[in-house]
């Protein structure tokens, strides 16, 4: 697939497709256990780096260390781990929650049970992306990447600017990157429609 084949309705610039904050998402609804997917946790733990989930004893050192949680308590590693353990698959994967992580990796740094929550969250994001929940921001970045090998839009003004500062010109060739992206199937994934 050529980058230009990406549908036109995909915005060029990064739109804000995620809610500004997610704290309001706190659902008061009772969780219906029979409707949960008990196999979900195994599905997650099968992935590299995610097996530590079974050792989580919910001490909350991750949440207490999380800079995003402090700003927006809707993002809560302990709670997300719990949701996966209980099998709340659809709720987890469709939720914008999982995309708010800033990847600081404090959760993993302070976990006494060596649960690598950063990796677990990454598995969840990959699963969600499979289903078409990839945020536009990342989709747009990938599109730039396929064109130029860089995740940002580039233009003439920028090139002129670099030249004026005596910075060397950059070779902007997305060819190899595009091939690798196509090989790993990411090109198909970014055109998926949300369920």
């Amino acid at each position: 697939m050529k980058p230009d084949d990406i549908p036109e309705d995909m915005p060029e610039d990064i739109p804000e497709d995620m809610p500004e904050n997610i704290s309001g998402d706190d659902s008061e609804e009772t969780v219906q256990v029979p409707n949960l997917d008990p196999a979900f946790k195994y599905e997650v733990m099968r992935n590299e780096g995610a097996g530590g989930l079974k050792y989580c004893f919910a001490c909350g050192a991750c949440t207490a260390s999380c800079p995003i949680h402090e700003i927006d308590h809707g993002f809560d590693p302990r709670k997300l781990a719990r949701m996966v353990q209980l099998g709340m698959k659809d709720e987890v994967l469709s939720s914008p929650l999982i995309w708010y992580c800033s990847a600081c990796r404090n959760c993993e740094q302070h976990c006494p049970q060596s649960v690598e929550f950063f990796n677990i969250l990454n598995v969840l994001k990959n699963m969600a992306a499979e289903k078409g929940y990839a945020p536009y921001a990342w989709v747009v970045q990938t599109r730039h990447l396929m064109r130029t090998g860089m995740v940002f839009r580039t233009d003439e003004a920028w090139e002129t600017r670099r030249k004026a500062l005596s910075l060397p010109p950059l070779q902007l060739d997305g060819e190899k990157v595009r091939e690798l992206i196509e090989l790993s199937g990411l090109d198909e994934l970014i055109v998926k429609k949300r369920p």
Partner: peptide, 17 residues
């Protein structure tokens, strides 16, 4: 129980740092 009677606060959480 006696410790709780004395008004000690128990927090079920581990501080990160």
């Amino acid at each position: 129980r006696r410790t709780r009677e004395l008004g000690i606060n128990f927090i079920r959480g581990r501080p990160g740092e």
